[in-house]
Amino acid sequence: MSAIPTAAGGSSRPRSAGRSAGLGPARRLRPPRLTGWLGVVPLLAFTVVVFGLAFGTMVFGAFTTPETAPGGVHLTGANMSASVHGAYLTSLIGSVKLSAVSALIATVVGLPIAHVIVTSRFRALRRAVLAGSGVLANFGGVPLAFAFVATLGNAGVLTHRFHLLSHGWSLYGFWGLTLVYLYFLIPLMVLTLTPALEGLRRQWCEAARNNGANTFRYWAHVALPLLTPSLLGGYVLLFGSAFSAYATAAAMVGSSVPLVTMQIADALSGNVLVGQGNVALALGVDMVVVAGLVMAVQLPLQRRSARWLA
């Protein structure tokens, strides 16, 4: 659940792109060709080795039988097929549902919050909120889950004070988990939207008003259409973040919501039948496929947003 945008975000477009002086001296100032490439080598080598090894092994395992199986390692589609059936399918659907709903709520709620923060006159508030968002979006689920367990769990402060249990409240159900997820999804949305909202020029608002648009119409015809790529991109990012979250659910022991991340962890730690390790890898591949789709949707949206609001 690593988050891309940061408080320091903003447009990553280089202002000086392509402004090479084009004269002789400029060329001499550059490092020589060969060493020029050297700087990128460590990063590429690291990702190829570490990422490539882990990813390759996962894919390989997902499509082969375990070594302990009779007949040794050979290609099979059984793992993949098992990963989209029965309890595994339920957990996949559960994850998708939880992620879709919580990301939707966070997107809808995050926009007004981000707008208030970005347009706030108080710089200190802005800074505090952006830094806090950075922490909440990146810190990981365990502490967040505990804060909620202490607040709304079965022995939580609010649960006790307002006798919520007798009203049928449970933090460990779908909506409880959604509430906890929002605690890191809304900050993530605020961080995602901040550069886009900062990119909304005052001239556009004034030009719209000058052309007879009131505040509502300005938002309906100018601001929202301009923000749509960012909002969609943010939604997709939040979905991915919620989809891959594991710690939150793991920390809320006794949660009744089936999640694919929990299934993988269980399968890996041998809590279930032996030989399910490769099914866990297959589930991992399932997740990569979903996350890959997410990215495939998000990247072009982000491009468009950058073109409009840079």
Partner: peptide, 25 residues
């Protein structure tokens, strides 16, 4: 009617739709 210093056209609308914006409103 006001003309601003720069960058005041709505980037998501074509030139024609920009001009027609007020009429649409």
């Amino acid at each position: 009617g006001m003309v601003f210093q720069s960058y005041s056209l709505f980037p998501h609308l074509t030139a024609l739709d920009n001009v027609a914006f007020g009429l649409r409103m």
